[in-house]
Design a binder for these strands. Sequence first.
DNA 1: CACAATCTTGGGAGCGCTCCCAGATTGCGG
DNA 2: CCGCAATCTGGGAGCGCTCCCAAGATTGTG
Lengths: 348, 348
Amino acid sequence: MIEPGDAAVEDRGTPTLEEVARVAGVSRSTVSRVINDLPGVSGRARESVNEAIRLLGYVPNEAARSLVTRRTNSIALVVSEPGDRVFSDPFFAGVLRGIHSGLAGSHRQLVLMLMAEDGNGNGNGEQLEKYLSSGHVDGALVVSMHGDDALPQRLAEGGLPVVVGGRPLSGTEVPYVDSDNFTGGLLAARHLVERGKRRIATIAGPADMAVGIDRLVGWRRGMSEAKLATDAVVHSDFSVEGGARAMAELLDRHPDVDAVFAAADIVAVGAVRELSARGKRIPDDVAVVGFDDSVLATSVTPQLTTVRQTVEEFGRTMTWRLLAQLAGEEYLPPSILLPTELVVRQSS
Amino acid sequence: MIEPGDAAVEDRGTPTLEEVARVAGVSRSTVSRVINDLPGVSGRARESVNEAIRLLGYVPNEAARSLVTRRTNSIALVVSEPGDRVFSDPFFAGVLRGIHSGLAGSHRQLVLMLMAEDGNGNGNGEQLEKYLSSGHVDGALVVSMHGDDALPQRLAEGGLPVVVGGRPLSGTEVPYVDSDNFTGGLLAARHLVERGKRRIATIAGPADMAVGIDRLVGWRRGMSEAKLATDAVVHSDFSVEGGARAMAELLDRHPDVDAVFAAADIVAVGAVRELSARGKRIPDDVAVVGFDDSVLATSVTPQLTTVRQTVEEFGRTMTWRLLAQLAGEEYLPPSILLPTELVVRQSS
DNA sequence: CACAATCTTGGGAGCGCTCCCAGATTGCGG
DNA sequence: CCGCAATCTGGGAGCGCTCCCAAGATTGTG
């Protein structure tokens, strides 16, 4: 029996593979095999190695390992937003939780990188790109790209496995994960039609983001199905104020509006506020449908009918896709759409 | 002049120090000196090395460097919350932004680690602790510890530089950064007294968090100064509903309350909602003061008088403290309190 | 019982870098 | 013109690990 205090065990700094080998009475190679769970080790050897590891509190030196394997066991999460907006967004919180849960058990670390501008228009994008493409991480998850930033494309071309969250605007080879925003918009429109509404407006998201476009297009499809006009459209950013402003504009331009599909719950909240301010009853005068099914949906009065997307699954799926690619799996889907579903509450 | 395409430059994979040396016509050592900005290199040598680096697109291999220097150039951000709550919290978003900005130019990466439980009560805390104390990161920032988790203490004892965000409940040697919550509470109380209020209540934060206790104690101090009673106290979690419930309880128990200091804006929002529901006018019947000066403060009606804490500075200060410690600076303050100030708006 | 096939094991080489030390070069006063 | 310090440069060793290959141990088979 080996005990701490044995001459063989005594030691100064962090234990190395070599010392584990000495204590276990085997060679470096054998210890390495045990650690990496490789075959070709007798039960006896395996046991004494594990015992020695426990005894010494040995933890492999990642740097040394990384140096030879050319893997870093870390992946980057690139967030290309000023930070404030993203991080206070419940959507992002859910995605992050999903990523974390998707990473559990994979023995990989998450390196967080914000793409920021320093106020002089100088971003850290170049530096970030260099870092990412230099083998510091095994892969990257990129979320909330606006417009058609070609960063993911360039990274992928540089040989780095990349998965994008949210459909990129410009067609690209880079795999992405997204909610089925089109179907979500479609469901919202159909639902409002079924409710007997005929003058259905929408407050769409930003016109330069796929998430805005896709939901709008889905809504249009639903309207066309019912042979209804699709002219009551206003774009807004994702904020309460934006939603309120957009609602006001809609009411001014189309006083006969009897329903509105807002591209996000937060926008719907603004719309509800404006409607209430104008004395419109919800849903009788104007029905409202949101998108996201975030906490907001159930914390306003009336509670929102909304299109649910499973944000946590979003993050988990991105992670899964990336890890699968890293593992060299074949026939992986280039992109993945996650289902959305309608949740009916009081506002419609 | 060296050109890409020269025989000396041609190459297969990622360039190494050695190749840069060859191209530049100097030795490994000289290149290393240039890269690490060490003295003792002639201008001529330095130039040709830089030229070669540019030419080859050389980026140092962090693993190799880390292996010998025993530094990783990365620090951990440990968040010990279920994730959802923290990440959707604007406070945390600001802190994260501050950390990021504090890290800018330091050439260090942020490794994000969530302390999560898997629903069976099994956390990843042990694994996380092992990882952190095994030299995978140079230091750690730990935020939102609840109660008196001894993780930071243990990490610090293990030799890892640690800075905690928010005063730990139990006394500890670990340096921390916090807002001056005591003074914040004091300012709020004094302000309400000055406004002529005499029956001033408080909705305090959780009794097991320093942030809750300190603000409460500050309020008590302010009340004592004015010789006012400090019995109208109710604790609440940081949520709108909690705030509303707490306000209801206060009104039931002390119908004569004419002012309330809420330990957070989000709680104040709940209080405002409850007050409005009961037909109380703000600030005439009951004045309200919040804490944080988050976006909430200005997005409710009436806009909140609140105690401002500079969240971004919070994160930046944590980072600074950690980096300074890593740099071996002496006479560093064990803990740092950031000033809070009163922002008067409509609710008081 | 000899020999092949299989399973285990150990040692060497080398990943790309930093750091130390010794050697080469230069400057300058005696 | 030499000596000695100051400046600059190069090579070796080694960080802790993985991976390859050869050698040893064990088992099976004619």
